[in-house]
Amino acid sequence: MIDTITLEVARYRPEQETEPTFERFEVPFNKDWVVLDALNYIKDRLDGSLSYRWSCRMGVCGSCGMMVNGEPKLTCATFLSKYVPGPIRVEPLRYFPVVRDLAVEMTDFMDKLKSVKPWIIRQEERPLSEGEYLQTPVQLDNYKQFSMCINCMICYAACPVYGLDHHFIGPAALALAQRYNMDSRDQGTDERLDLLSQHEGIWGCTFVGECTKACPKNVDPAGAIQQYKLKAATEWFKSFLMPWGRK
């Protein structure tokens, strides 16, 4: 049994460095500790200037995503014991600009998320007096998997297409668009189609499949995108064969 484990933590302090360097920290090894516990230990005891994001430490808030030994992970759900004897290399999420140390700039993702209109769109709102929009368990099950997304951006850090082309809308936003498209209460599919059917939308995806493997919530964005491609292609042929059928 080892007593300590070494973390190689990426440091980037824009006022003193032009590119990130690694700093080694020796932390106590505890088999119940996750990488985030180790980072908290560093911040509390060794170097209070270390910057990173975290909140719930239970896989719900989606703010502690980082690269752990080259793989995008929620650090609150990644145990130190998996990497014995170490060292463990902790870096900010790949493919995003780094603001400081382990914190990335996420405006790009936030804009993309908003652009796909991830909310229920109604052509006509029903008055409150008529009650809620009901849904059967089967209708819920249809999109439930895609609704588990916690916006942790781990799928973006796994996606080489996003890394190579930042115009690509990316896995989480596309999966969430599909989540609302498949919701029986939603009527916004046509409204989302223009954006999603661009090259930077679903067609940019080459089905690498890494987003799905990396997702801590089993959302399967890659599946969502391919399903949407199939649907969009079917619609395309329909509108081609029956142009009068288009609204």
């Binding site: 189609l193 223009d194 059917s197 661009q198 090259h199 067609w203 491609k229 969009a232 292609a233 619609e235 395309w236 042929f237 288009r246």
Partner: peptide
Amino acid sequence: MGKRSNEPLVWSLFSS
């Protein structure tokens, strides 16, 4: 519909 993309066509050919 905005600019009409050919992606659905080429993707269908690719898939088949």
